[in-house]
Amino acid sequence: MKTATAKPATSKQATAPKQATAPKTEEVKDSALNELFIDELKDIYWAEKNLAKALPKMIKGATSAELKTTIENHLKETENHVTRLESVFNSIGEKAAAVKCEAMAGLLKEAEELLSETEKGTMVRDVAIISAAQKVEHYEIASYGTMATLANVLGYSEAVELLEATLAEEKNADSLLTQVAENTVNTPAKSEKK
C-alpha cells in the first residue's frame, strides 16, 4: 500500500502574500470595520491633498539641491497618491471624500513653525525640514500599512494593491530623506552658529 506524501511547498508558494478574497457585499458594507476603513481613507485623502499644498513651501525653504530634488520628486508622488486614493474609493464603490485629518494638520503646522524658526539659507533649516518631512512620512507609513491590512481583511483586493503601492513609495521617501540628512545636511549643520 502506497502512502501519500505531501509535496514540498515551492519558494513562491511559501512567500506569496495572502490574497484578499472577494467581499461579501452586504456583510462587509454594513460592518463597523468597513466604516472605520472608509473613515481612514477620507482622513488620508485630506492629508495627501493638504500635503501636496505644503510641500512647495518646504521646497522653497530648502537650501541643499539634494533636499529640494528629493521633496520635488515626492511632491509628484503625493499628487499621484491623491489620484490613487480616488481609485481606492472607486474600487470599493464609494465616492472620494476628504475629512480633515487632525494629525496631518498638526504635522503641517509644526513644519511651518520649524521653517519660521530657522534661518533661511542654512543647513539647520534643512535639518528642520527633513525632521518635519519624516514625521509626515512616518504618519503616512502607519496609515497606509493599517489601511492595506484592513482592505485585505475586508476583501478589497484592488484596494490592497493600490494602498501597498503607496506604502512602498512612502517608505522609499523616508529612506531618501535619511540619505540626504546623513550624506549632505547633518554634518554641515553641526558647524553653523546661532
Rank of each mutant, 00 (worst) to 15 (best):
E164P: 02
V160C: 05
E161V: 14
V136A: 07
S116G: 08
K95V: 13
A142D: 10
G106A: 02
E112F: 02
T122S: 06
K109D: 15
A132Y: 14
S116V: 10
Y144D: 03
R125H: 01
V99Y: 04
K120H: 11
Y156F: 15
T149K: 07
L162D: 01
E110K: 10
M104I: 08
G93R: 11
H74E: 08
R125M: 01
V160D: 02
V82N: 02
L115H: 08
A159E: 05
E86S: 11
K76E: 15
C101L: 04
H81I: 03
K109Q: 15
M147R: 01
K100L: 10
N80W: 08
S143K: 02
R125E: 00
A97Q: 15
Q134L: 07
Y156N: 11
K100W: 01
H138W: 12
N80T: 13
K76W: 03
G121P: 06
E113K: 13
A111E: 07
V124Y: 01
K109F: 06
L85I: 09
E140W: 05
A165V: 09
Y139S: 09
E169A: 05
A128C: 05
A142S: 13
Y139H: 12
L154A: 01
A96S: 14
G145P: 04
A97S: 15
S143D: 06
E102M: 12
S91Q: 10
E112H: 04
S157K: 15
A165T: 14
E110Y: 11
T146K: 01
A148I: 09
I92K: 03
A98E: 15
A96Y: 11
A133V: 03
